[in-house]
Structures are given as C-alpha cells and as structure tokens.
Design a protein around this nucleic acid. Structure first.
Length: 226
DNA sequence: CGATGATCATTA
DNA sequence: TAATGATCATCG
C-alpha cells in the first residue's frame, strides 16, 4: 500500500481509501508513510490527524477551507474509546471576534465546515500508545434538519453575545451542541474583540468545538441505527 | 497572528 | 471522572 499522489476525485474514492485503512494501526500507517511515531502525543497533538490526511490525499496547510475542496468534504479524525464513545470534543474552526455584525449562519464558517464531514473514528484511549491506536470505519455525514437547527441556534446565540461585547462572559457551557473555547498557542496570544462598551479589546483567541454528546449521537445513528 | 491538526491537564 | 480552559506543533 502506498500514499495517494492526488486527492480523491469523488466521495466514493475517498470512502474506498478509508476502507483500506480501516483496521490498521497508526504505527503501521506511519511506518508505511515514513512518518516517525511519537511515544505520546503531548508534543504531537495533531499527529494522527495529519497522518490520516496524508493517507487520504488531503491538502496539508492552514487554509480556512475544507480538506477536500473539490468534494466539499471536511475530514475529521475522532478519538473514541472501546465503547465507541468520543474521547474529545471536535474542533470546528476559528471564531471571528470582530466585524461580525452582518454575519449569518448561512455564510458562516461553521456551517461550511460541517455541511459535509468524513468522520474517521480512531480507537484512541489514552492507555493505548499512539502506534497501537487503530483506525475504524469512516463514514460521510451531513447534518439533518434537527442537527442543523441545533448548530444554528447555538451559533447564533454565541455570535450575538460576541457582537454585544460579552465575550468574556461566554464560557464552554454556552450552547447545547456547539461551544466556544480558547484556541491558541498559550495564554499570551491575544486578538481583537468587542468589549462591553463596544470598544476594541484584546482577548484570547477562540474556536468553535462540537460537544462530545453531539458527535456521539452522530456515531450512534450510523453504527447503532438509533 | 491566524489558521490548521488536535490533546493535555487542572479543576469542579 | 468529565469537562473546561490551556496548550503544543506547524505553516504562510
């Protein structure tokens, strides 16, 4: 098996690639790709995601776009435990904190990123070394009406608070399925935001994340026919 | 700095 | 023990 030389031309080709990876360990995939496998992920937090991007032919980089622009598909690896439950929240995208007055859900980066996602579960309990973590069965998901409505409601509520200058009072507890949390290299990273009096303030950058129970419901629907 | 890939680790 | 808030690596 070898690394793809080009992005998949269709969703079917993408899924075919994921089927060939299912059941293999990350260590095996790293060896085949000439990738070094870290002992732990403390200093390699993005390692598994980047390894799978490589194997599926996604473009590397930090562009605020989907991983497979020509397919309109976003790739998300999802760490799960032995019961198939998500171990972590899922990062969606950076949150805009200024110039957000005229933004709409329809044109939001969150909606764009989540309009079509290829979920790739990884059996990744912390007791399992990175090399032994195993790739599961991928599937392509698009939010149904209820899911989109829930995402939209959370997004609109959070964005309104940001627009009203209440960013410092928004915590990860806001939102049923989508939450806003810090997203930065460290506590010293600062960006512009709107303050209580409408003035410009400096604050820690934020990102949107999917709560675990939301991704768990997505998994339940496809694997347990719930 | 902003954005990607995320997981870590302290605390509630 | 789970979740929140913090952090790590890399790229342009």
């Amino acid at each position: 098996m070898q690394l793809p030389q080009h992005p998949p031309a269709s969703i079917e080709e993408l899924l075919e690639r994921t089927r060939q990876l299912a059941g293999l360990t990350l260590g095996e995939l790293a060896d085949l790709a000439g990738f070094a496998t870290p002992e732990n992920l403390q200093r390699h937090k993005g390692w598994s995601g980047q390894l799978l991007e490589l194997w599926l032919g996604a473009e590397a980089g930090s562009k605020p776009e989907q991983d497979f622009p020509q397919l309109g598909v976003e790739l998300k690896t999802l760490p799960v435990n032995e019961q198939g439950k998500p171990l972590e929240t899922t990062y969606v995208c950076y949150a805009p904190l200024v110039n957000i007055a005229g933004m709409s859900w329809e044109h939001s980066n969150v909606r764009n990123k989540l309009s079509c996602v290829c979920w790739l579960p990884i059996l990744a309990s912390r007791t399992i070394a990175p090399a032994e973590r195993r790739v599961g069965s991928a599937f392509v998901w698009q939010p149904d009406q209820n899911e989109e409505a829930a995402l939209r409601q959370d997004w609109e509520e959070i964005m309104e608070l940001l627009a009203l200058g209440k960013i410092e009072s928004v915590t990860a507890r806001h939102g049923e399925v989508l939450q806003l949390r810090p997203k930065a290299a460290d506590g010293k990273a600062l960006t512009d935001a709107i303050g209580e009096q409408g003035q410009r303030i400096r604050t820690r950058p934020r990102g949107f994340y999917l709560k675990k129970h939301f991704t768990q419901q997505i998994l339940d629907k496809v694997f347990n026919d719930v």
